[in-house]
């Protein structure tokens, strides 16, 4: 057994550091965004009836009259101290607002990922054993059909079905977990299902093909020659060598789940990141938009650092550096 977790923590650190260039690029681009605005940024934000005093006030607070790099250094300095600025109208700390909203989005995204994996991976394992059969062909078709359903279609169709026709689930709204766990669950089901339509199909496809590829390997032939049953071979010899690929796809699907949360949250009126970014865009609340970009990139970098570590845990040939 590996005696200590220290090399893993170190490796995690190195990979997080490797994400810094991406982070800097995104945050700088986000700062420079306001230069794309027609005319003066402050004027564009406040509208044409803004008084010169209001514009001066806004420029003083957010520095829209400064060159992008100066604004960026200022933002970076504050961000390193944990200050991501204040929201444009309510003047709340961005970091605080974002933290509350992010928890909601993470709960939904995480639940959708777990649910999709729990459905797709066992199904893929079962189908890999009978690849080319009728059920396998039917499920492959179902998967490619489900992949063609955008989230904004699945929210409409599923809420039509479950909350309007069947009246099983609430159509909109959100209850925090700590206020009412059961109510939270009821409000969670529909958003999670909407995000999972795509994810289940995606995981199924990737996992099935990967299992099938593993089944072609020589060590499976030697396992078969030892007289092991197909079921035994699938669980003991196919699953683990196929996991790195599944892990990669899990990492990639984080981006999809966050993107999908915009649709889901706006449709079901759930106060998460997606809902927040939409109102921020409407209000030209650039500090908030920038903070959300930072958060998204951070999640991405963290997830892929974890995926990398996952490879090392699954595959003994991968060295942890």
């Amino acid at each position: 057994m590996h005696s200590s977790a220290t090399p893993y923590l170190k490796a995690l650190g190195t990979r997080l550091l490797a994400g810094i260039p991406v982070l800097l690029l995104v945050t700088f681009a986000a700062t420079a965004l306001s230069d794309l605005m027609a005319g003066s940024a402050a004027q564009a934000i406040l509208g044409e009836f803004a008084t010169p005093e209001q514009i001066a006030q806004l420029n003083a607070a957010y520095g829209y009259d400064l060159p992008a790099w100066q604004r960026y250094l200022r933002w970076l300095g504050n961000a390193l101290q944990g200050d991501l600025g204040h929201t444009l109208y309510s003047q709340q700390p961005v970091a605080q607002v974002l933290f509350d909203r992010a928890l909601v989005t993470f709960e939904i995204a995480f639940a959708a990922m777990i649910f999709s994996l729990a459905v797709a991976v066992p199904l893929a394992l079962a189908m890999a054993a009978r690849a080319g059969g009728r059920l396998d062909s039917a499920l492959r078709f179902a998967a490619s059909a489900m992949l063609a359903v955008p989230t904004f279609v699945s929210v409409v169709v599923l809420s039509l079905l479950f909350s309007i026709f069947l009246r099983w689930l609430p159509a909109t709204g959100w209850v925090p977990f700590f206020d009412d766990p059961l109510g939270n669950l009821r409000h969670l089901i529909l958003p999670v299902m909407c995000l999972s339509v795509h994810q289940v199909a995606y995981f199924f496809r990737v996992a099935r093909n990967e299992f099938l590829a593993t089944l072609q390997q020589d060590f499976i032939a030697s396992a078969r020659a030892k007289g092991f049953s197909t079921r035994y071979i699938l669980w003991h010899h196919v699953l683990r060598p196929s996991l790195p690929q599944v892990l990669t796809v899990m990492g990639l699907s984080m981006t999809y789940l966050l993107g999908g949360s915009f649709i889901v949250e706006s449709f079901f009126a759930i106060p998460g990141i997606g809902w927040t970014v939409l109102s921020a865009v409407q209000d030209h609340d650039l500090a908030m938009v920038q903070a959300i970009l930072v958060l998204t990139v951070l999640i991405f970098v963290l997830v892929f650092a974890l995926v990398d570590l996952g490879y090392a845990l699954i595959d003994p040939r991968v060295e942890v550096k």
Partner: peptide, 12 residues
């Protein structure tokens, strides 16, 4: 690829 496409466009 680290950002959801919808977010990139929304930001712009």
């Amino acid at each position: 690829s680290s950002l959801p496409p919808v977010l990139i466009i929304l930001a712009l």
